[in-house]
């Protein structure tokens, strides 16, 4: 029991930090989730890729969905609730304070100036975290441990499909569920034909 409580406390602490420092939209939590995956044994990188897939295809902000999912993975239903509440707590406190004087906050050049540089940094972080997602997609088999495994284990079909999907999703802005549904069908076909 005490170990369970300790897990809940750690979950709260990790997701509180995520909520405080994840800036720049729904994907901003992804680098933090990979950071958490590396430091705790709550979920693996490939489980995280599956969680993000489900978080993208269900309603609600992806950041919230992913936190709920990750928390559930670490400590069941209570873990899901704790992680979600911890994620939104910092911004809740900040907004409650800012909402009293948001006109002044909006014009604060200092805040604007800080965000001019924080936003590109967030993009860099998300870009780096997305490498993990690409890795999970193009190495469907076992995890790659040595660099020499890369060429022998890479799925070229998967790599080509990732590129095609990225271009389609960038050009045609349909809801993610369409791409994910198509991905599931393609995965089934390739799986049963032995191509992936």
């Amino acid at each position: 029991m005490s170990e369970f409580l300790w897990t809940l406390l750690l979950l709260f602490w990790e997701f509180f930090k995520t909520g405080l420092f994840a800036v720049g939209g729904g994907l901003a939590t992804i680098p933090f989730l990979y950071d958490i995956a590396a430091r705790y044994d709550w979920f693996t990188d490939s489980q995280l890729a599956n969680m993000l897939a489900i978080s993208e295809s269900t309603p609600g902000p992806i950041g919230v969905n992913a936190a709920t999912f990750a928390g559930f993975h670490a400590a069941g239903i209570l873990g899901g609730i704790v992680a979600t509440l911890a994620l939104i707590l910092p911004s809740f406190v900040i907004i409650v304070i800012v909402s009293k004087a948001y006109q002044r906050f909006r014009c604060s050049l200092l805040v604007n100036s800080a965000f001019e540089t924080v936003r590109p940094a967030a993009v860099g972080l998300i870009g780096a975290a997305s490498m993990n997602l690409i890795e999970a997609a193009i190495f469907p088999g076992a995890a790659v441990t040595a660099f020499s495994d890369v060429l022998s284990q890479i799925s070229w079909i998967a790599l080509a499909l990732v590129v095609i999907c990225a271009i389609l999703a960038y050009k045609i802005k349909k809801h993610p569920i369409w791409y994910i549904g198509a991905g599931a069908v393609v995965g089934l076909v390739l799986g049963y034909t032995g191509l992936l």
């Binding site: 897939a53 967030a122 990732v162 990225a166 999703a169 393609v186 390739l190």
Partner: peptide
Amino acid sequence: YAFNGIRIAVAGLVIAAVAGLIKQS
């Protein structure tokens, strides 16, 4: 098998989203 394909779609979606973010921010 389905999730092998879904992970491909998610990787593509995130790359597209990052491209959008680069353009925007």
